[in-house]
Nucleic acid binder design. Structure first.
Lengths: 252, 252
DNA sequence: CGCTATTTGTGCGTATGTATC
DNA sequence: GGATACATACGCACAAATAGC
């Protein structure tokens, strides 16, 4: 298959996929109806079945179509834009959280990333990060709600002294001092079992269940620059949020 | 309905994929190292390159490996608990989730809401709801990922027969059949300890930690019409999403 | 009810392009 | 440049699921 040098080296399946996506979004293939069969696409675009399947696989990944043997490829929605807007996880909520759950610093240290830590932080092994451990709670005398481990890239360790008592999220302290804004925050929530040391610090029972929320703060070129791990014993906290319909989005 | 013998009906790529997953989890293929090349897998399992690629495609979808031409297939993580399963942000994610985690129905029944259930469902006591219990997983033979309890308002119980094998979220089945769209989805995530009955169904250990994700689907005038409770034993699943900073939000 | 046509799913063989070392 | 490994692309065959007669 000769391709003229001026022609962009775009895979054929990508061209076909984009064409189909455009057709779905423009209403040429209505929601609930079937897309052309693989065989039809082969003839229409003069491609092999393999290429047709690769193209449709992209539509599938976008949730635009569903496929079933014996039935066909059915258009399921004609808009890729998300219909649900996430609320309850906005910047304002994060500020509220930080103010309510002031941090009580237990320990500050420098660590050299070993194997596990490098994986967690997404950084080369041996790199040095600052680490802060503390308890979060509304009232210093009451049971703490969470055990917090925060890892901060070496460049921004200057915020360490500002954390306690500020009532501000750490990323906002970094922003204020260094002008670095997270372009993205990746959040992961898992269930874990409390180990002995963590349980003692939290005045909880070893073996008890706990919620672990890990947040990676990424800035655009440099990647991860802060990682916060919060450990909440079961019953002291539950994460909740609400998805709402985006009123501006078209209905299927 | 005919049920074929579980082993014979399994595609070859699924067998290969499961083997590779097991090998990664057991440490046979360490994080950061390369998986056998496609060519090696072909010889090792006596399969075609096409089948090998289909198997690796599954690992890729799970985020276990990354692939690059000229380099190879690199193991990204060996902690299935830290696998990134994107759920909850966009409609496409929810569809992807439902397709990957097909439901295996254990039980369907009608229940009359007692005190606790009425509170959970936000309905009057004594009201009748349909309840479906099932296991969610990618592979019927492997360990299930979650125990699912779904409560559906009496009016929409007609979707019950469509659930198994559809690979679609239940709320989207309700939408397709009855035209009811959730105006709001409330989601709550807590850590719990597995009880005996649930542990047995999940082939897990009683007393183990688990993640419980409860979703309330509300429509505008009628209120809650579906409640889904998913119970994930620790290590089998982790909830992850990405928060975007709202650039329009005022900073304190 | 079984039969058939249709459509996707699975699987194999082969060839060439592209990225990386 | 060469070697290696994945990416794309063509061909074919049969199986499984489904719909309609």
């Amino acid at each position: 298959m000769k391709r003229s040098p001026s022609q962009a080296a775009r895979p054929r399946y990508a061209v076909v996929a984009q064409t189909l996506i455009d057709d779905i979004l423009s209403g040429r293939y209505a929601v609930g109806t079937a897309l052309p069969t693989e065989h039809a696409l082969c003839k229409q675009f003069d491609i092999s079945r393999h290429t047709a399947r690769e193209a449709i696989r992209r539509l599938q990944a976008l949730g635009l179509v569903t496929r079933r043997a014996g039935v066909g490829t059915i258009v399921h929605t004609d808009h890729i834009a998300q219909r649900y807007m996430q609320v309850g996880d906005t910047v304002a909520d994060l500020y509220q959280y930080a103010q309510d759950m002031a941090i009580n610093v237990l320990d500050v240290s420098d660590i050299e990333a070993d194997d596990d830590t490098a994986t967690l932080l997404g950084c080369p092994e041996g790199q040095t990060w600052a680490r802060l451990q503390g308890l979060r709670g509304m009232d210093p005398d009451a049971l703490p709600m969470a055990l917090t481990d925060v890892y901060i890239a070496q460049d921004y360790r200057g915020v360490l002294g500002d954390i306690e008592g500020s009532g501000l999220p750490i990323w906002s302290l970094i922003e204020a001092r260094y002008g670095v804004i997270p372009s993205e925050v990746r959040q992961q929530i898992t269930a874990v079992t409390l180990g002995h040391d963590d349980a003692v610090k939290l005045r909880a029972t070893p073996g008890e269940s706990a919620l672990r929320i890990t947040r990676h703060y990424l800035s655009d070129p440099t990647g991860t620059y802060e990682v916060a791990i919060n450990l909440y014993p079961a019953g002291r906290f539950s994460y909740s949020n609400t998805l709402r319909i985006d009123p501006t989005a078209p209905l299927p």
